[in-house]
């Protein structure tokens, strides 16, 4: 993948609260890299929560976090360790 100038790919982690999910599928549909898919398993309420299938593809754009109507999915960005500067964890 080609990046302009000093831009670096972001690093982070996707957190999914499976019990709060209602299985609407918004995150799966609108993920630009198809990182998520609806899993076969049920949660306590009988919905199918999403699961991460291709985490290495994720660009941490946080669209899934913004679109999740249940507030059950969020992304945390990792700080860049090489540069040693304290960058914000949230944009």
């Amino acid at each position: 993948m080609v990046y302009f100038g000093d831009l670096k790919p972001k690093k982070g982690k996707i957190h999914i609260d499976k019990e709060r999910c209602k299985g609407c599928g918004f995150c799966v549909e609108y993920c630009p890299r198809d990182v998520l898919e609806l899993s076969e398993e049920f949660n306590r309420k009988g919905y199918h929560p999403p699961r991460i299938v291709k985490e290495e593809e994720c660009c941490y754009c946080q669209l899934c976090e913004a679109i999740c109507p249940e507030f059950s999915l969020y992304v945390t960005l990792k700080k860049e360790e090489e540069e040693g500067e304290k960058s914000e964890s949230r944009p």
């Binding site: 209602k22 299985g23 609407c24 679109i67 109507p69 507030f71």
Partner: peptide, 13 residues
């Protein structure tokens, strides 16, 4: 709110 309702998205925005 029902599963599939867009209201949660508006609150997040």
């Amino acid at each position: 709110w029902c599963p599939g309702c867009g209201l949660g998205t508006v609150v997040a925005s």
